[in-house]
């Protein structure tokens, strides 16, 4: 009796939850459908063949991969520090790290100029001591993307480290493994699914980065003009072309995310 009632209850609750779910899906998917419907499919071939498009796409992919690699290299140790070490001001540090996620990217770009620009805090020193100026370089694109995207990776990895059983690391230590070996052979494999997810998020954010990039790195085809910048400028003169470029960006990201899902998230 009670079982039957419970089952009927859960069936009746389903539509109530399905409705907002469908609304959420609509909000996310309808704009994409709009892009696809309005795309000038006839010009697709010509747009894709344009050297500027290929140039922007290659630049976007290489810079976003660089940003992701650097985010892993620097972000994972930082996540480890946040998750494993007890120190004063840790809450403040964590808030600072999340800040780029809520900061308007254009403001982030200005902040980057004030730090690494030719007259910036560190930038002027770089310029005087080494003759290095970052703005308007591909390096600046990578830095802008790193600034905006790295928090996604750090948050994901820190959460994974916090929830992972510390006992495994202790067990490895009693078996004679030093810190680095423990990290490499135990900690890292255990958080691999979250690291993969964090890296994918980080990469996706870097690929779509616009505001910080155009403000800090400028816009020059082949050097700093990534796909989002190309899309924005195309929108100024030929919106149809912008739609095609957006679709290319969409297709590439979708492909990579689906690929990563099979590879990395399957174990999770």
């Amino acid at each position: 009796m009670t079982q039957g009632r419970a089952r009927r209850g859960s069936v009746r609750r389903l539509p109530a939850f399905a409705f907002p779910a469908v609304l959420a899906l609509l909000v996310l998917v309808v704009p994409l459908v709009g892009l696809i419907v309005r795309a000038p499919w006839g010009d697709l071939g010509a747009e894709l063949a344009a050297p500027e498009v290929r140039q922007a796409l290659v630049l976007s992919i290489t810079t976003s991969l660089w940003a992701t690699a650097l985010a892993i290299l620097f972000g994972v140790p930082l996540a480890w520090v946040l998750a494993r070490l007890e120190f004063r001001g840790r809450a403040l540090l964590r808030a600072l790290i999340v800040l780029p996620m809520v900061l308007p990217p254009v403001v982030g770009g200005v902040a980057l100029l004030l730090a690494f620009g030719r007259r910036g805090l560190i930038g002027q020193w770089l310029d005087q001591a080494f003759g290095i100026t970052l703005p308007f370089t591909t390096t600046a694109v990578v830095i802008a993307e790193l600034f905006v995207a790295m928090p996604f990776l750090i948050i994901a990895v820190e959460a994974a480290l916090r929830s992972s059983e510390r006992g495994y690391e202790e067990a490895a230590a009693t078996l004679g493994a030093g810190r680095w070996l423990v990290f490499r052979r135990v900690t890292l494999p255990l958080i691999a699914p979250s690291l993969g997810a964090g890296a994918a998020l980080c990469w996706a954010r870097a690929l779509g980065e616009f505001g910080a990039t155009i403000t800090f790195a400028g816009n020059l085809p082949g050097t700093t003009q990534t796909m989002p910048l190309a899309v924005y400028l195309a929108l100024q003169s030929r919106p149809e072309g912008a739609i095609v470029l957006s679709l290319v960006l969409l297709a590439v990201s979708l492909g990579v995310l689906v690929l990563l899902r099979d590879r990395w998230f399957a174990a999770a």
Partner: peptide, 16 residues
Amino acid sequence: TERRPVGMVFQNYLLF
């Protein structure tokens, strides 16, 4: 810990 000649069996075993 890693340099002590100590072996430990943990309560929930903690097999990797």
